[in-house]
Amino acid sequence: MRLGTAGARGRMPAPEATTERAAISLRGVGKDFRGAAGECVALDGVDLDIDAGDFVCLLGQSGCGKSTLLNLIAGLDSPSRGSIDVGGRRVGMMFQDANLFPWLTVRGNIELALRLSGVPAREFGPRVEELLETVRLPRAASMRPHELSGGMRQRVALARTLAQDCSILLMDEPFAALDAITRDAMHDETERIWLERELTIVFVTHNVRESARLGNRVLVMAPDPGRIDSELRIGLQRPRRMEDPGVADRAAELHRRLSERNEP
């Protein structure tokens, strides 16, 4: 096991890392924030290995450190303790808000992502087409973000993230603000794209059903300090649907674990 600090992930993976199956590995990761009320331990003692190509959901109530953990994996923030290793893989990230750049069209948003990941300009045209095809918005290229519905914006955000050719996709409650029908559709797309592109996905949610619908593994987190409390392997056939009895079953189990935590 190669233990690198967050800053080391830009390097090429060490030879032994390629023989390992873990795409993401965390060892003793902790994160403290200095706030107005003194030191706050947002995360402590997180040990985690995520296989390449796996779909992992992080489930937990608000404030248990889900976003913090995702930001650490993305390299947006560095851990106070421990080490994080993504073996030099490209990491893309999506948030609850699509955060499209409002001064650019849909095409402009995707092109900027291509440019920032070093794709030559002459390849932009076909790549944008292909990415919009992937997220099923083939005719939206010249539209502006404010002209899109919430679901369409998240599709564009997904296309923009995929433009980086990332192999790890981190998603922080990306569909929490969508209506149920649009969200179901986005679950289908996410599942399809995950399979097609052989992505490793870490998906943060506070919705038990969503985690049971999407994940291969669901990691239940607990607060004070933020940590991984237990794990549930979903083990259901794909493609799945929100209303599958198996999904409902796993959701009930996850719900039980979460509410157990909340009782004093």
């Binding site: 099923r136 918005l137 005719r139 939206a140 539209m143 002209e147 899109l148 519905s149 679901g151 369409m152 599709r155 029908i181 649009t182 179901d184 559709a185 986005m186 289908d188 797309e189 399809r192």
Partner: peptide, 19 residues
């Protein structure tokens, strides 16, 4: 809601704005 329905739904949402 299946994949296809979802795609059609989005297509419909986009159409008026284009027009």
């Amino acid at each position: 809601m299946s994949d296809i329905d979802a795609g059609r739904l989005v297509g419909k949402a986009a159409a008026p704005a284009r027009r």
